[in-house]
Amino acid sequence: MPHLEIRNLHVRADEKEILRGVDLTVGKGEIHALMGPNGSGKSTLANVIMGHPGLDVTEGQIIFEGQDITEAAVDERARMGLFMAFQYPVAIPGVTVTKYLRTVMNAHRIARGEAEISLKDFRQTVEAAMALTDVPREFSTRYLNDGFSGGEKKRMEILQMALQKPSMAILDETDSGLDIDALQVVANGVNHVAGPEMGILIITHYQRILHLVEPGFVHVLYQGRIVKQGGPELVTLLEEKGYGWIKDEVEAAAA
């Protein structure tokens, strides 16, 4: 059974059709990369899988672990094991990282019918995850993403992924704007949580993260459709030739 399956997905935002029939399947234990030029609809795909309220699915389905989640509430998707690392994580002023992480952790536990996490267990879990994702301890008392640099925000996203242990993670351009060190931290985090029970979809414009986290499958999105699929060799090809040839191919096929 595929883990995440996107079937003929059409999506509109502000009356504009962004995705025009996307099919994509991610199996357990697989790492997929979704690439494409700016404006091809990559972030829209990530956001619609997570259930962004501003996006309107006009046709098609999103199936996760055998269930149609096309209309499911965002928080339900998260508690089912879906996770999206945001391209632009939002700040929540006045809410410390500690308070936030505990609230999230407890929301998941309560939904599973478990007791709230003890202070000791919480501290141990978070400290381990912080060490893994190279997030300094001082972050605990800072307000979530408030005044964080781009790199700090991305590390917080990976920290949350490590804590939440999702069965399917989507990384929406988590690599963009990162220096080498931060990119390495992100890659380490992803490699750490990856495993036979997990599916990963890395959305990126660039190739460099794909040298640190190696995808088994590569998809190229262009003008709201997947126009090319292949293995890691596609990354090398795009690195050498850019996206121009894809555009030419699509136009040639349409002519």
């Binding site: 997570m50 259930g51 998260a78 996770f83 929540i92 929301a107 998941h108």
Partner: peptide, 18 residues
């Protein structure tokens, strides 16, 4: 903000309150 918090599993009322 609400979308971000919901995407981490917080029900709407909890997200708003936070």
């Amino acid at each position: 903000q609400l979308f971000y918090l919901a995407s981490r599993g917080l029900p709407e009322a909890m997200a708003k309150r936070l």
